[in-house]
Design a protein around this nucleic acid. Structure first.
Lengths: 219, 219
DNA sequence: ACCTGAACACCGTTCAAGT
DNA sequence: ACCTGAACACCGTTCAAGT
């Protein structure tokens, strides 16, 4: 079902983390249905009412379960949102890892263009959800989660850079950090300001060049 | 007769500036003191207890005023945080505008180095506060505020780029957007992940080169 | 095993009453 | 003019009682 061991692993780093673990695993079919309904309801409330109005009561109501039932599966509100953000981050990470695999062995210019395109695709696909995720991640302490996801991406990009056909003296590790920060950071801040659409379009056009110029300069 | 739900609704929709403005201007010396105490207390609670534990009660207590007094000056919690974030952003904007003035007429490489240095200085100066600001800005809808601040910075950087001694075909507006997003975004995401210190150091070393390479490539 | 919802502690906000 | 704090509505969370 949808509540995997990934979660357990995720929490080993922090002391407070144990509190975020789902309280119980479903043992009967109906409880699995309940969990799914809660997850779906959370996303629905998030998108229709906004992060500010996302309350446990509202989610339970939308999911058609009592508030008590919800607390049987998620020990608190944070755990619920954690699960939602985690799923979103997993999706993003998968896309980026696939892009990295596809770009393996290409030259630096191609890699710069490919990574930028992949990032804009995965972020632009559902910009509303992305914004909501940022809000949740900041309101609760989900920095670890994003941290891990980013670290994973950075590592893959590091390996990718190491494989570049025209690589010379470029340091894969530090370059991967800068590239990751540039991509994710710039898109994030632009998504949060006004008239994001047109500015994102500008960024989408310019960022490949910026990444490419940096890679060539540092090579 | 009270209508709290109406108020809550208003505060959840896009914040009209009026709702966030301080409720009254101080007319006597003691109320100016009160306002200052509240501001200071907010930052203290933010830094010692964290954004999640920042409650109006706690701030009032720390400021040594009653909760009622606080609501006489700030119509709600959001307005209070708005004021704090606004002050912080003003500080940052001032520093960046000064840097832009000092770099006027220099070449692109010098501009890239100068802007990066200024940004790291102003953000690194109080990294803890910076992180807290990010959290507040996301939890409440302070996007407008950050939007305006960023727009101001972008405009100044645009003018700066236009003044560059070695400028050729570079488009000041779009380049300023990308530069601003790259700088603010990359520092922001790195500040939020783990082992930020060493990664910030890496970014501080590499980012001037990245900006410079981009400016030269687009010129 | 799974679900329920009244009950509790706490938070944002108000307002009648004070100086 | 400025301040106070009990009171209110609402939210996160629990737990005794149900199926």
């Amino acid at each position: 079902m949808k509540h995997p061991s990934v979660l357990v692993f995720a929490f080993m780093t922090r002391p407070t983390a144990a509190l975020l673990k789902p309280r119980k695993a479903p043992r009967q079919a109906r409880s699995a249905v309940t969990i799914d309904a809660i997850q779906i309801a959370t996303i629905q409330v998030l998108l229709t009412d906004g992060a500010g109005r996302l309350t446990t009561t509202r989610v339970a109501e939308r999911a058609g379960v009592s508030i008590g039932t919800m607390y049987q599966y998620y020990p608190n509100k944070e755990a619920l949102l954690f699960a939602v953000v985690e799923r979103q981050l997993d999706r993003i990470t998968t896309v980026m890892l696939t892009a990295a695999r596809d770009l393996h062995g290409q030259d630096l210019a191609t890699i710069a263009r490919g990574l930028t395109a992949a990032w804009f695709n995965v972020k632009g696909e559902d910009a509303v959800t992305s914004r909501a995720m940022y809000a949740i991640a900041a309101e609760f302490d989900l920095a670890d989660l994003m941290s891990r996801s980013m670290e994973q991406g950075m590592h893959a990009i590091g390996e990718l850079l190491r494989s570049a056909s025209d690589r010379r003296s470029l340091d894969p590790t530090s370059t991967a950090l800068v590239l990751t920060a540039m991509l994710s950071g710039s898109v994030r801040v632009v998504m949060e300001i006004e008239r994001a659409e047109e500015k994102l379009a500008c960024l989408r056009r310019e960022l490949p060049l910026a990444c490419q110029a940096y890679l060539v300069a540092v090579n």
